[in-house]
Design a protein around this nucleic acid. Structure first.
Length: 418
RNA sequence: GCGCGUGUAGCUCAGCCGGUAGUAGCGCCAGAUUGUGGUUCUGGAUGUCGUGGGUUCGAAUCCCACCACGCGCCCCA
């Protein structure tokens, strides 16, 4: 039997209703923050990610789905979307279009990692990019936007961690110091971190190895090495978050895995996710456009929500709200009733209700089916009803049944929806 | 990529010191008055015991490999 390939999965009802709900909540919040949608291809030239995300990152060095096109060009399924968005921004000179600086996207990304709960090889991100400004006001607004989406989706119990990784010059100074300090205590580190102390000293900071705790505690904070501009920028972001009433935790050891980050980085964690506790990550990337060949500077900041993980945290709670339930099941008893109800069903559907029209002549069976379908109401239409010109409307949960006129059906069903 | 664990009906699982698969629960199908479901009762269907190989007279049960999933590491959304 052919099965979905490792790390990919089918999203089936009723779960798909939760996914749709998240999509539409996100789109509606984006609209209120004046973000517009961009759709980029799911595959690009490999070079885009190699340069944009960084050759040294795990994503590029071992997780990309790459293949050769017939002409030999190396292509890659996008492992993330920021590089593509910036590529499109440069390619179409979006900096020249007034009022177009805030973009969002929703779609699948691909990374060849070991699948786990909350980690898939095809996974979905809801993300945003605000391009063209280095103002800390934008940083705070982007973070606010991300949190607003989570909250409107009903996510509870999140923690916002923020940090500054400085500009390249500040960071280089810090990494040099780190490398030097770690070299002195290398024998006290775990094997993984001994290796990293040379290749990527920043990574040592957020190691989970208990034996490395004392060494890490003793290391200096990156904040001691930030230059004045970075320091002021970060302070202002914190100030603006406080002004918005957003709780945050400054986490000097927060290190993110993409090379393009500068200044502000942030992450939102959620307890219910196991080892993959990060539900959202983001940061500023002031040098990315130039790195990708832009002649004009395009500082930006963005974030990306793991939709799989977001859905995971709210699915259970949302399943109790009747999301996606059928509004009305019409039990048309007999051919005459079916003819009569065809028009009625069409009217009700046009009014926005979800309607199932049953042609089962046996009422008992029709009600059984209505029950299994999860319909909130059943409208009973037989010879009696057609003759009388009124219908029997039954609320399935309570079993209560009322006689209603044709033009009162939609209102009655809608009245109990919320 | 590494380590540990799990894999039996649609779902949750029992069986596992080898001897023809469970009246198991839930679900599904049919029936119990010709227009009233969801609670009850009766009857019924369903499994290459994850896949492939090995040991054995005989393997769901022991061994090996592979695959899938879960947990942890790495890393990230």
């Amino acid at each position: 039997m052919i099965k979905a390939i490792r790390g990919t999965r089918d999203i089936l009802p009723p779960s798909s209703a939760v996914w749709n709900h998240v999509d539409s909540v996100a789109r509606s919040v984006f609209r209120t923050f004046n973000y517009q949608e961009i759709r980029t291809p799911v595959f690009e030239e490999t070079a885009l990610f190699a340069r944009g995300v960084g050759e040294e990152t795990d994503i590029v060095s071992k997780e990309m789905y790459s293949f050769d096109d017939r002409d030999g060009t190396s292509l890659t399924l996008r492992p993330e979307n920021t590089a593509s968005v910036i590529r499109a921004y440069i390619e179409h000179r979006l900096d020249q279009i007034p009022g177009l600086k805030k973009l969002y996207y929703i779609g699948p990304m691909f990374r060849r990692e070991r699948p786990q709960k909350g980690r898939y090889r095809q996974f979905y991100q809801i993300g945003a990019e605000a391009i063209g400004s280095d103002s800390p006001v934008i940083d705070a607004e982007v973070i606010e936007l991300a949190i607003e989406i989570l909250q409107q989706c009903g996510v509870k119990g999140w923690r916002l961690l923020i940090n500054s990784v400085g500009d390249p010059e500040s960071r280089k100074r810090y990494v040099d110091v780190l490398r030097e300090r770690l070299a002195g205590v290398k024998d006290k580190l775990s094997p993984d971190n001994q290796r990293r102390s040379e290749t990527n000293p920043l990574r040592v900071l957020d190691s989970k190895e208990p034996q490395d705790e004392p060494v890490i505690e003793a290391l200096p904070s990156i904040h001691e090495y930030l230059n004045e501009a970075c320091r002021a920028h970060f302070a202002r972001v914190c100030e603006l978050l406080a002004a918005r009433g957003i709780p945050y935790e400054v986490t000097p050891r927060l290190v993110r895995g993409l090379d393009y980050y500068t200044k502000t980085t942030f992450e939102i964690r959620h307890g219910a996710l196991g080892a993959q506790n990060s539900i959202l990550g983001g940061g500023r990337y002031n040098g990315l456009a130039e790195l990708l060949g832009s002649r004009v500077a395009a500082p930006g900041i963005g974030f990306s929500i793991g939709q799989d993980r977001l859905v995971m945290t709210i699915e259970e709670a949302l399943s109790k709200t009747g999301l996606g339930r059928l509004d009305l099941f019409i039990a048309a008893l007999g051919d005459a009733a079916v003819n009569h109800c065809a028009q009625l069903a069409a009217e009700l559907r046009r009014s926005g209700l979800s309607v199932e029209l049953s042609a089962d002549p046996k009422l008992k069976r029709a009600l059984e089916t209505a029950n299994k379908t999860g319909a909130r109401f059943t409208l009973i239409v037989g010879d009696n009803e057609i003759a009388a010109g009124t219908y029997a409307l039954k609320e399935m949960e309570s079993g209560n049944q009322n006689v209603v006129a044709r033009d009162a059906i939609a209102a009655a069903v809608r009245a109990s929806r919320q």
